[in-house]
Design a protein around this nucleic acid. Structure first.
Lengths: 362, 362
DNA sequence: CGGCCAACTGGAAACGTTTTCACACCAGAG
DNA sequence: CTCTGGTGTGAAAACGTTTCCAGTTGGCCG
């Protein structure tokens, strides 16, 4: 109930009976001051409960000590962990995180970046729908504003903390192929708004081709379909001869298992499933999930370090992709029957739910 | 590469050939302006790519349009979802979120609050280790600073968006009891730093007592134990006659299932398990997890709305606890044998890993 | 034509810092 | 004694806004 309004350095100076400049010097240890006045100022600050206003500082130094962080959604543990990683890397540096999320909306992405920039952040760490097409991001980049990406493949001059989705997906195709699988499918939740999913499909597709497998079926699910095992089962059952599914994230992979059970199929006997991300939970399932392990926290940390370097005027150096690890699990096994159907089957891949979209490379 | 430094309203005014005040009025539509000068200013702002500096504004209006948000960790999906909820409630209000996390450390909590306050946030939404013991929080409260809690039970004069952990835990005890369970255990990961866990145990304990059941064993796990099913199995196997486990969160509950499998026990035939939180994943397991469903996102939204009201000078009104829902699941069933051992067994609850701590009420 | 009001305009203060600059003082060297 | 150089100090400018206030127009009414 006591003092409602803030106390400024002016109050401290008055209380200590000295000038503002002196008080500032004492409190920041940024210049000479006699022992006597030094003590008076310290005491006054203590008594008044003074603390510097970051705003005044920011205005004068034109550095807000704040960095902006944009992710699609914190409800996705992968992004939440990444932000936590950023946080950790920034702790102790004096920087705070101003956060924003776009809910996977490209327009919201732009809006968010503009807002963060208006708040005078000193740098930006970003995961968005389409970094290369965002006008706000492009403008910032042209101005030489410190920028750092997460999860995206690097763009010329724009460093990104990422994993090689394409290569990781090829690894999955390789495993499928070596076990004898032929008919495969790739499941994704937000294919159109996630370059990560698209790169994974591209890699998966490329390796299947390279090994003479039929093209994998590409299935984009709606939220409803992903969360309702019955719907998912219906979709899966339209895929004749399907023996292996690569899901674009672990939650989807778990949903597939549930759906398989509903279809009376057994994992991995009738259907192999591989996920992506390597969330902890997959390891604890009754049948541990085979998946590609990534480290979102490490991505956040790397992005933060890259940005810190950039803000200190360092050169823009692109780190190599973070390591990934194929985690073996009970959900991956050889197909039940060595199905010797020929690959020319005109019905594969089926067109239901098939999504045509421009793939990166191929 | 073009202009490296920011363009201010001064630049716009000069370009438009008018005074700063006029430019401000035009751009904010906050005062009269002739159509002609209006157009010139708009055009100049457009061409220069001007956007207001939030810092200048904040300094002058002493409102930063930023609210601080402190949670233990974003790596915990429950808190991440809550922050996402805050975000949603704040979207469109012009407020941004400055985030901080303490990693479940009470000292870091204090430090974080001080930092956020120094950044001149307009309000604070907080989940911390010990809100009532934090000097930083107490000082803020005394100053009448807008504060809003999440997850905690309300404190006099400090509104909190929460669920009734005590009552929810009683519900679990009730279910256990009605199915015939007697020997129960309560598992928690961070008992000492989580009043939520403590309240759950208190409610669970109280209801067990009320129904004449032996006191539940209280087990606090380390991270290592929780994540290594073998270790967890060892601990569980020391509990003789145990037939039902209440885990303080869903991930723990899933780990218990895994451990049970390792022990050769079947869930729910040999061991019933109930979790807490109601994360989506539990529903997709082969045996859907029985759990208490909560809505972290809704908590975040409520906390944000409460804070907004508070910042507009509204009275401090404590909302009732958010509704929770017992979600039935395959992991809960009657115990295998109506074990008719007497309750006086001197070995129950076992002392291994037992944690003595001051319990709230109960 | 004088007076008045409305519409429009811009100078200047204020917000809380940091930093530059000039001044005062004092010791020691010449 | 005067000069030099260092040390300690505070006034003032600057950062980017908003807003108050006073000023300048122009139109309209008496």
């Amino acid at each position: 109930m006591s003092q409602r309004q803030k106390i400024t350095i002016k109050d401290v100076a008055r209380e200590a009976g000295c000038g503002i400049a002196t008080a500032s010097r004492v409190l920041n240890r940024s210049g000479p001051a006699s022992a006597e006045v030094c003590e008076r100022v310290e005491k006054a600050a203590q008594e008044l409960g003074f603390s510097f206003s970051a705003i005044g500082r920011a205005l004068q130094s034109s550095r807000s000590m704040t960095i902006g962080c944009l992710v699609p959604s914190l409800a996705n543990p992968v992004f939440a962990e990444a932000v936590q990683g950023v946080q950790e890397a920034l702790s102790g540096t004096g920087y705070q995180i101003l956060i924003a999320s776009s809910n996977y909306d490209g327009e919201a992405d732009n809006q968010a970046i503009a807002t963060l920039l208006a708040k005078d952040v000193d740098g930006l760490i970003v995961t968005m729908v389409a970094p290369e097409q965002s006008v706000a991001l492009t403008r910032a980049r042209q101005r030489g504003f410190p920028l750092s990406l997460m999860f995206h493949d690097p763009i010329e001059g724009l460093p990104s903390a990422h994993v090689d989705n394409f290569e990781a997906a090829r690894e999955v195709a390789r495993r499928f192929c070596e076990l004898g699988h032929r008919r495969t499918a790739f499941l994704a939740l937000r294919f159109s708004t996630s370059d990560r999913s698209r790169n994974r499909y591209a890699g998966f597709h490329a390796e299947c081709r390279a090994r003479g497998l039929p093209d994998p079926a590409l299935i984009e699910l709606s939220e409803a379909e992903a969360n309702t095992p019955r719907l998912l089962a219906e979709i899966l059952s339209t895929l004749d001869g399907l023996s292996a599914v690569f899901a674009s994230n672990d939650f989807l992979a778990i949903a597939v298992q549930k759906a398989a059970r509903l279809m009376g199929k057994s994992v991995p006997r009738d259907l192999s499933v591989v996920g992506f991300d390597g969330v902890e939970i997959g390891r604890l399932l009754d049948i541990p999930l085979a998946t590609i392990e990534t480290a979102p926290g490490a991505m956040g940390r790397q992005a933060a370090h890259t940005l810190l370097d950039l803000m200190q005027g360092g050169p823009c150096i692109q780190q190599p992709p973070l390591p990934i690890n194929f985690r073996a699990g009970g959900t991956l096994a050889p197909p039940r029957t060595e199905s010797r159907d020929d690959d020319q089957g005109a019905t594969w891949p089926p067109s239901v739910h098939l999504l045509k979209t421009d793939l990166k490379q191929g």
